[in-house]
Design a protein around this nucleic acid. Structure first.
Length: 312
DNA sequence: ATCCAGGCCATAA
DNA sequence: TTATGGCCTGGA
């Protein structure tokens, strides 16, 4: 696959993309900060404010950060974050071949890339996701950023769009915050988890970059040893920020898909579901999960929820 | 209104 | 090792 890079100043244009859908990728639920503005999507990615739009295999990204960007850095950031160098068309083809249900999910919303998010932001965002729902998660992340993050939007952006953006707060800044402060951003009972994690990371006792280097199994154990991080959140962090594509987060939606569509056993255990996913999808489990999750929640939501109700 | 959600932790068997 | 109850709060 060959990509063409063009653009100037603060703007990058990538051409020749296949199996890439910006909208599906940023709205499928893997990231919590992307915001639609007109026909573009805005987000702070690794401390830089990006405005992205895409159609017909072309992706255009502009940087509106306070600190001006070098075009070569923008290229690196965009390629790495969106995983543009991956042969995702091949991944989709293999998955379609592997299983008809996943094939249906891919047809429903193709071109979902697994974003390479920052481990720290990813960890805290998913801790917030526990026993919560997406609009609230988004709101809490935004409030934490506004209160504890550094401002990143430049004057041009603020004049054009009439709003400001703040970076996701560092571990240091959240370690300085009180549990009460974090609660007030809407984190509620998860605030003590966040506070503890912030202190561990800020002190260097826990190094997420180091964990990311570990192989899947030991990285998962390490993450699960953290207070407030169970199997589901660990898998999410491994998949969304540590490039462990064999990870398969089992949340309520995936659980419904596995129990009612695949296993046809309403009370299949977590272990059974994990074993099934591993044997069925192997190294591509994370990609399958992403497609199935989005499909289950948006297209099959009512149906699956009803089935779940009926078996309780 | 009031009900409950992208889990996790603490107990109990 | 597996099964329950409780948790805060803002959106639906």
């Amino acid at each position: 696959m060959t990509l063409d890079f063009g653009g100037s100043n603060n703007t990058l244009i990538v051409q020749g993309l296949t199996a890439f859908d910006l909208e599906n990728t940023v709205t499928c639920g893997q990231a919590f900060r992307w915001r639609r503005v007109g026909d573009s999507y805005h987000c702070v990615v690794r401390g830089r404010l990006l405005v992205a739009q895409s159609s017909n295999g072309i992706l255009q990204v502009s940087d509106y950060s306070l600190e001006p960007v070098e075009v070569s850095d923008l290229v690196d950031l965009v390629v790495d974050y969106f995983c543009l160098q991956a042969d995702h068309a091949h991944t989709e083809a293999v998955l379609r071949e592997l299983d008809p249900v996943v094939a249906e999910a891919i047809d429903f919303a193709p071109g979902i890339r697994i974003l390479a998010q920052e481990p720290w932001e990813c960890l805290i965002s998913y801790v917030i996701s526990a026993r919560n729902f997406i609009p609230s998660i988004r709101s809490t992340v935004a409030r934490l950023a506004e209160r504890f993050g550094e401002r990143v939007s430049n004057d041009e952006y603020e004049q054009v769009y009439g709003m400001q953006w703040y970076a996701f707060p560092t571990a240091d800044s959240l370690a300085d915050a009180s549990v009460r402060d974090i609660e007030e951003c809407g984190a509620a009972f998860r605030a003590r988890y966040i506070s503890k994690l912030a202190n561990l990371v800020a002190s260097g006792e826990v190094d997420l970059t180091e964990i990311a280097w570990l192989p899947y199994r030991s990285a998962k154990e390490k993450l699960m040893s953290l207070y407030g991080v169970g199997p589901k959140i660990a898998e999410c962090v491994l998949l969304s920020s540590m490039r462990k594509y064999e990870a398969f987060p089992i949340d309520v939606w995936i659980s419904r898909v596995l129990r009612f569509v695949y296993l046809r056993d309403p009370k299949a255990s977590l272990k059974q579901m994990e074993a099934f996913a591993k044997s069925k999808f192997g190294d591509l489990a994370g990609f399958a999960e992403q497609y199935l999750f989005h499909w289950a929640r948006t297209l099959k939501g009512d149906y699956l929820r009803r089935l779940d109700q009926a078996t309780k």
